[in-house]
Design a protein around this nucleic acid. Structure first.
Lengths: 108, 108
DNA sequence: ACCGGTATTCGGTGTTACCGTATACCGGTA
DNA sequence: TACCGGTATACGGTAACACCGAATACCGGT
């Protein structure tokens, strides 16, 4: 599936939040995870801008750790604000997706 | 539900396409339909820019008709290109939403 | 000494939803 | 007649977002 970019707006950040919530992880691994999930066209740069935003908005805790295979990695984990943000993201997602599905089914 | 704006990016146009597909209609009525669907914060101006975009991209046929209660209405209906666009929209939606749901369920 | 894979950063771009405002037409009311 | 509220379209500007390209950095193997 190609050119999903517009449809991912507003959801990609939530996805990254969920991935971090599942496990403390870092930028490059998050990109791979998204690719594996089916979002094959999501690129490093996109994820890093999201990560920077999350950090700026104080939704994550960041720990820099050396890597054995390259430059140091910045590991991200959610703080309380991040978990709250994730919860509202899922609430919005449920709301929006259920309503769009209803429209799709010719819903009134 | 408030502040859905970011999440609607990329989907709102598809919703408008679907509404027009169901029935030849006009801007103000489309806005009302979206509000009824649960997208209460979507405003006239937003819908008109989408309509203008659809027209510019030659996805709709436009017919101006007089109204009994106000200025003339611009009625929109889909042409072949519009129906094709709608089909790809739903395909993308199915793809994206299923994958996000999978992520939500702790999917691998 | 070089190269490929891993990893982060940053400046710039295009698309999008939203907002405010202006314009237009009609019916009712004072 | 003059005004106002509801219906309807149009438009310029803004902020947020995903994306792109290029630069930088570190390591292991050849």
């Amino acid at each position: 599936m190609e050119d999903l970019t517009e449809m991912l707006k507003g959801t990609l950040e939530g996805c990254v939040l969920e991935i971090i919530n599942a496990e403390e992880t870092y930028g490059w691994a998050i990109t791979r995870r998204l690719n594996d999930l089916g979002f094959t066209d999501v690129i490093d740069g996109t994820v890093y801008t999201i990560l920077l935003r999350l950090e700026r908005n104080k939704l994550v805790q960041v720990t820099k750790r050396p890597s054995e295979v390259g430059p140091p990695r910045k590991f991200y984990s959610l703080n309380d604000a991040g978990r709250a943000e994730l919860a509202t993201f899922w609430a919005k997602w449920q709301y929006v997706s259920s309503r769009i599905d209803r429209l799709k089914e010719g819903g009134r």
